[in-house]
Amino acid sequence: ILSMKIDWRNLEALPLSIIFDKLVERIDHIYFSAVCKNWYSIAKFNYQNRQIHNNVLPMLMVPTKGCRKKRSLYGISLKKNYNFILPVPCKKRFCGSSHGWLAKVDYSSKVTLITLINPFKDAVSITLPPICFMDRYRRSVHSEYDVHKVVLSTNPIFKPHDYVVVAIYSMRQCLAFLKAGQKTWIYIDDIHRLFNDVIFYKGLVYAVGLLNNIVSFDLSYLKDEKVIPKVVSLEGDDYADRVYLVKSLEGDLWLVRKFIDFPEGEDNIDPSRGTKRFEVYNLELDFQTGELIQMLQIDSLGDNVLFVGDSDSVAVSASYFSNYLHKNSIYYTDDFYGDTLPYPNGAFDMKIYNVKEKKFRQHCPYYHWFKGMPPAVWVIPPFQWD
C-alpha cells in the first residue's frame, strides 16, 4: 500500500472552502486563517464574497478553569470551551462589549475612569477622560457598577478619529457621550434617567429606560456640555428589570423587556432565581417627528435569534445557523446587579428563552469555577484584514 503525504498548506480552493464552511465559531475562522498564507487567502475570500460576512455568532467570554487571572471563550454552537486565553482581568466586571472591545471601570481618588480594551489586538487599550457625577449617586462599594453599560458607534481600530462612546452611568442611570479626541464628556440632562440600553440606529442614537421611556438625539449636534434629547416615548408605569434595543434582521427597531424573579434563599444557587420571562415589541417610529407611533408586541421572532446582556444587543439568522441555534429564541447572560454583592455565587442565570413556547433551555452550563466571578459576556471576535 502506497502512503500519500497530503500537502495541507497547498490544498486547492474548493476543498478549503468546504472546510471553512463547516466552521461556525468566529474563533475557528481566525485559527483557520492563521495556518498559512493560502488558508488566509481562502478565509479572506469567503469573508468578502459570502454570506458569512453578515452572519457572525457571538461567543461567551467566561472565567477560565484553573486560572484566576484571565478569561477564555465558550462556543455555544458546539458547547465547547476554547483554549484561547484572553489577556483581560478575570475578576473585573466588564460594563460593555461592543465592536470587539470591552469596557471596564476603575475608581480612584474620587475619579471614575472607563478603559476600553481590545483583547483580540494585543490587549491594546484606550483610557477615556474621567466621567463626572455627584458622590451621592456613586456606590460606596462595588464601584465598577457605577457605569452600567458602554456602547461604541464603531470599531476604533478602523476609525480611530471618528467613533463615539455612549455610557450609562451613576445610580440614576443617566447618559453621557464622548466623541473621539474630546477631552470631556457631553452629558444628557439628568431629568432623563433610568436608562438601560443604547443603540445607534439610522443616523440617531436611541436610549431606552426601565419604564419604557425612550429618547433619541442626533450626534452631529452634540457640542454643548449638556444636551436635551428628543423624547420618543414618555415613562409609563410598567416596570421591567432589564430592557434592550436591538435592530432586527429586517431593519426594524425592537424593544426587549426582561422580567426577573427574586425568591428567598439568595445565598445558594437556586435555578428558580432569575429570569421569569421576556417580552418583545416592534417599535414603529415617525422618522419625521421622531415620535413613537405604536409599540406592537410580537410572539414570533421570524428568522431572528437575539443575544442580550452586558453587551451590544444583536440579532443573527436562525436559518443560517439552523443546526446550532434555537428558533424564536433569546440567548441571554446574567446582567442584573443590586446594591448588595452582585454575584456572590457567580453569574448563573444564563439561558435560552423561547418567545413562542415561553420555555427555557441552557446554552452554557454553570461551572464551579464561575463561583464568585463577574458575569460572562457576549463577545464577537473581530476579523481584521491588514
Rank of each mutant, 00 (worst) to 15 (best):
L301I: 04
K258N: 09
G346F: 04
G290C: 10
S41H: 14
D299V: 01
T289M: 09
S97R: 09
Y324S: 15
K91M: 11
P156N: 11
I30K: 09
V256Y: 01
V24P: 01
V165T: 07
Y145G: 03
H53Q: 13
P160C: 07
F195S: 05
L86C: 03
Y82I: 09
P374A: 12
Y331P: 05
P381C: 06
Q182L: 03
M373K: 14
V198Y: 01
Q384Y: 15
E144I: 05
I85L: 12
N46T: 03
G302Q: 06
G96K: 04
N213K: 14
F133P: 01
I214Y: 01
L234D: 15
K22R: 15
V377Q: 00
K230W: 10
T275W: 00
A123M: 03
P229D: 01
V227S: 06
D303E: 14
S329R: 00
R136I: 14
G236Y: 00
P89T: 10
V231L: 15
L14T: 12
I1H: 12
P344L: 14
L14S: 08
P160S: 08
G66Q: 02
H148L: 12
R68L: 10
Y169W: 04
T184N: 13
K223S: 12
G181Q: 05
E144F: 05
F195E: 06
I30H: 07
I186N: 14
Y187H: 10
I1F: 13
S220A: 12
Q294I: 02
R361Q: 13
D238Q: 15
T112Q: 04
R93V: 10
S233Y: 04
D162T: 08
P63Q: 06
L11W: 03
F321I: 05
E144G: 04
R138P: 00
K359N: 13
R26I: 12
G209V: 04
P130D: 13
S97P: 10
Y107H: 13
